[in-house]
């Protein structure tokens, strides 16, 4: 105990507490934009994305467009943010340049989260399950049919 008391004298204690405070603060700040995002979907179906049939997980549901990517890259069309979705293996991409919409991408082998820039690679996929969601007045998100233009922006640079 005397050794600890001796070691924990004023300069060391100050350095220690300062380092801990900065580390905790910076960790908290850096985690904020990459938190898991739960998206309340307006439509409700019995077979939901992420639920299981038998022993198998549903990888895409009504409202998803599935694209055979064969390992190709998925790109970010506009500066924005990518968050992990509460549905395992899915990501939510949103951008200030396209208000009222968010996009759900499932099937990526590895996803990038946080702030992203136009042209960034989000990840690669064998099959990409893509959904466009439009914000509703009551705060839910409605699955809508995405345009071919939006899909092309996501899969080609």
């Amino acid at each position: 105990m005397p050794a600890i008391a001796s070691a924990f004298n004023r300069p060391w204690r100050t350095l220690w507490l300062g380092a801990m405070a900065i580390a905790l603060l910076s960790t908290a700040c850096s985690q904020a934009p990459t938190s898991v995002r739960t998206v309340p979907i307006q439509q409700s179906w019995e077979l939901q994305l992420g639920s299981t049939v038998g022993k198998h997980r549903i990888a895409g549901g009504l409202g998803d467009i599935s694209i055979e990517m064969k390992g190709d890259r998925v790109y970010i069309p506009f500066d924005g943010e990518v968050q992990a979705n509460n549905v395992a293996g899915c990501y939510i991409y949103s951008t200030p340049d396209v208000p009222a919409y968010i996009f759900r991408l499932c099937g990526l082998k590895s996803g990038k989260t946080g702030r992203v820039r136009s042209g960034d690679t989000l990840g690669t996929a064998d099959y990409l399950h893509f959904a466009a969601l439009r914000r509703q007045p009551e705060g839910t998100w409605a699955l809508v049919e995405p345009s071919k233009e939006m899909l092309e922006r996501m899969i080609s640079k």
Binding site: S6, W12, S26, T27, C29, G114
Partner: peptide, 30 residues
């Protein structure tokens, strides 16, 4: 002052965590 190994270990972990976060803070993506 005699350094407690536990305290030094904690300090190193905190500093590494800080450096990792600083690297993220200066990254253009953020």
């Amino acid at each position: 002052p005699t350094l407690n190994p536990l305290m030094v270990g904690g300090l190193v972990v905190a500093m590494v965590g800080l450096l990792v976060d600083l690297r993220g803070m200066v990254s253009p993506t953020t």
